[in-house]
Nucleic acid binder design. Structure first.
Ligand SMILES: [Mn+2]
Ligand SMILES: [Mn+2]
Ligand SMILES: [Zn+2]
Ligand SMILES: [Zn+2]
Lengths: 142, 142
DNA sequence: TTTTATTTTGTAATAATTACAAATATGGCA
DNA sequence: TGCCATATTTGTAATTATTACAAAATAAAA
């Protein structure tokens, strides 16, 4: 078991189980923004008994602890992202793929950092920019 | 029946039915971003037989025709918005209310209009900024 | 090794949305 | 105005994602 992943699990005061380890390892460096079902399906190959429920439970614990994030850009299901630094997302309406987009460049989205904590009297916790359209790959298939 | 609403239905080549009229009338000027269930529940008072399916069908036809928009900021369900001009949304994680936010002010979100059609080779159709946190009302109850 | 609390599993329940077909209503036309 | 073809509504059933639950298994502390 990779020690960095084991460490990450211990950091959030959870028991280190093969299932949790496998889920975190699968997500590490994964840029596809997989759904819970994607993750479960892939893990079944190496771990034929891992249950859907465990995948869901683990993912929500990881989200709660801030180790991964949920991305709500796909209208049909939650997608999960190991990247927790500020960035945004592009969703292809045809193939459903989700791509990362840098915070500013190359899209020139500028959020004034001075004002990001207050908005019409509301307390702002998160800002997500969701961009939808037709991805590069799907575009070239036309 | 209000003639402006009737006109809007005809514009999208649909038959004018009392159900469609009631749905559009309910949405007109509504700033609460109701869900399909909210809409159905309210309409039942005046129209005791209107079905869930009709509400869903009508809403998706209106979305398809660009007369209203779907807002995906609520992780549990679709919310509907009669405003189709560019603006963004704040979602209260406690009470679930959704508020409109102006495109630039007062939040100082600046999207460079020159670059909004291309992004890493992807074709951009929509940009939505979703802001989440604790709303004014919920904040004052703490 | 023993013990206990946590975790996993399998299954069932819930919630939102979509599919379908029979009954009904709309709008064009005689 | 009345008839008719087609679109729409309804009620119900199916689907999909997610959550709830309790018994069996396991991790980690003693
Ligand atoms: Mn991402
Ligand atoms: Mn709005
Ligand atoms: Zn695509
Ligand atoms: Zn609130």
């Amino acid at each position: 078991m990779a020690p960095n992943i084991t460490k990450k699990i211990k950091e959030i005061a959870l028991r280190v189980t093969p299932q949790r380890h496998a889920i975190l390892k699968f997500l590490e460096g994964n840029v596809t923004h997989p759904s819970a079902e994607n993750i479960h399906h892939k893990l079944l190959k190496k771990m034929p008994n891992i249950s859907f429920t465990t995948v869901y439970n683990t993912l929500s614990k990881l989200v709660e602890a801030g180790k991964i994030q949920e991305v709500y850009i796909d209208p049909n299901k939650k997608r999960f992202d190991p990247r927790i630094d500020p960035h945004h997302h592009f969703y292809c309406k045809v193939c459903g793929k989700v791509f990362d987009v840098g915070y500013d460049a190359p899209f020139s989205v500028i959020i004034n950092p001075l004002n990001t904590k207050k908005l019409d009297g509301h307390q702002v916790d998160e800002i997500q920019i969701y961009i939808k359209g037709l991805c590069k790959d799907c575009r070239s298939k036309r």
